[in-house]
Simulated assay, not measured.
Amino acid sequence: MKNIIKILIVSFLLISCKSTMVDSGLIVKTSPYDIETTYSKLKDIITNNPNLTLLLDLDHSKNAASVNLNLDPTRVLMFGNPKLGTPLMKANQTIGIDLPQRILIYKSPSSGTMISYNDPMYLKKRHNLSSNDEVFKKISKALDDITNKVITAK
């Protein structure tokens, strides 16, 4: 009986840990390229897409260096499409804290070059948006397509 209780407790803890990871709302992908190549490919894809506008190119490592601190390479590209984002903000303006879209490119000491972005379906839940399903699906597909182009060889 004690063993069954221990197994149930351990199982519960493992399930709880797993759901916390899943509920983070982040989609994380590994790039086979170094950070500069990954960053350059991503920026090119965004700037050459007529439906997207690059709004911000943030280099956290450079900013850290400006105050004499070291940070592994960490960059953020912020971009958007007002035709998709505006209807979401009209439905619930709080989603504006998560828009425009951002993709983080960073060097993980243990995993190499990584790409992360917010899962649009998580944002839908976070901001209690029950409508605009097609917009969320379109954004999800676009982010998946963009990041997959970055991490696949040409």
Results as ranks from 00 to 15, higher is better:
Leu88Gly: 04
Ala142Glu: 06
Ile27His: 02
Tyr106Glu: 11
Asn148Arg: 02
Asn63Val: 14
Pro73Asn: 06
Asp44Thr: 12
Leu54Pro: 00
Pro73Ile: 05
Ile5Ser: 10
Lys6Met: 14
Leu26Trp: 02
Ala65Gly: 11
Asn148Pro: 01
Val22Phe: 01
Lys149Met: 04
Ser31Arg: 05
Lys125Val: 06
Ile35Asp: 12
Val150Ala: 15
Ser19Phe: 08
Asp44Tyr: 14
Lys41Met: 13
Tyr106Asp: 10
Leu55Gly: 12
Thr53Asn: 05
Cys17Tyr: 03
Asn81His: 03
Asn70Asp: 07
Ala142Val: 05
Ser40His: 14
Ser40Arg: 14
Asn51Ile: 07
Gly25Gln: 01
Leu56Lys: 15
Thr147Phe: 03
Leu129Gly: 03
Ile139Arg: 00
Ser111Phe: 15
Gly85Gln: 02
Ala65Lys: 12
Asp145Val: 10
Pro73Gln: 05
Ser66Glu: 08
Leu88Ala: 05
Asp34Gln: 13
Val76Tyr: 03
Met121Asp: 01
Leu58Ser: 10
Ser140Glu: 06
Arg102Cys: 00
Asn132Arg: 01
Lys43Cys: 06
Ser11Leu: 05
Lys18Ile: 15
Leu52Pro: 00
Glu134Tyr: 13
Ser110Cys: 15
Asn63His: 13
Met89Glu: 12
Cys17Gln: 03
Lys124Gln: 04
Pro120Trp: 02
Thr94Val: 13
Gln101Glu: 01
Gly80Phe: 02
Asn128Arg: 02
Lys107Asn: 11
Ile45Asn: 08
Pro109Gln: 09
Ile4Lys: 12
Lys2Ile: 11
Asn48Leu: 05
Asn51Asp: 11
Ile46Ala: 00
Ser108Leu: 09
Asp98Pro: 00
Ser61Glu: 04
Thr37Tyr: 14
Val10Asp: 07
Asp133Leu: 10
Ile4Asn: 11
Asn63Ala: 14
Pro73Arg: 11
Asn48Tyr: 04
Asp72Ala: 14
His127Thr: 06
Asn128Cys: 04
Lys137Thr: 08
Ile9Asp: 15
Val22Trp: 02
Ala91Lys: 09
Lys43Met: 06
Leu129Asp: 02
Gln93Glu: 14
Thr38Met: 08
Ile97Ala: 15
Asn92Ala: 09
Asn3Val: 13
Asn48Gln: 05
Leu55Asn: 11
Asn118Pro: 05
Asn51Tyr: 06
Thr113Ala: 11
Met89His: 08
Asn70Gln: 03
Leu123Lys: 01
Ser116Cys: 04
Ser116Ala: 07
Thr38Ala: 07
Met121His: 00
Ile9Lys: 11
Ile5Glu: 10
Ser11Phe: 06
Lys137Arg: 10
Leu26Phe: 00
Ile46Gln: 00
Ile7Gln: 13
Thr47Pro: 05
Asp34Arg: 13
Pro73Lys: 06
Phe12Val: 06
Gly112His: 08
Lys124Trp: 02
Tyr39Lys: 07
His127Ser: 07
Ala64Ile: 13
Lys107Gln: 09
Asp72Val: 14
Lys125Gly: 03
Met1Glu: 12
Ser24Cys: 08
Leu8Met: 11
Asn132Val: 01
Asn92His: 09
Leu42Phe: 04
Pro50Phe: 09
Asn92Ile: 09
Leu14Arg: 05
Gly96Phe: 13
Lys124Asp: 04
Val76Gln: 03
Asn3Lys: 14
Ser31Trp: 08
Cys17Arg: 03
Leu14Gly: 10
Pro87Gln: 09
Tyr33Ala: 10
Pro87Asp: 10
Asn3Leu: 14
Leu14Tyr: 07
Leu58Val: 08
Met121Phe: 02
Lys149His: 04
Ser61Pro: 01
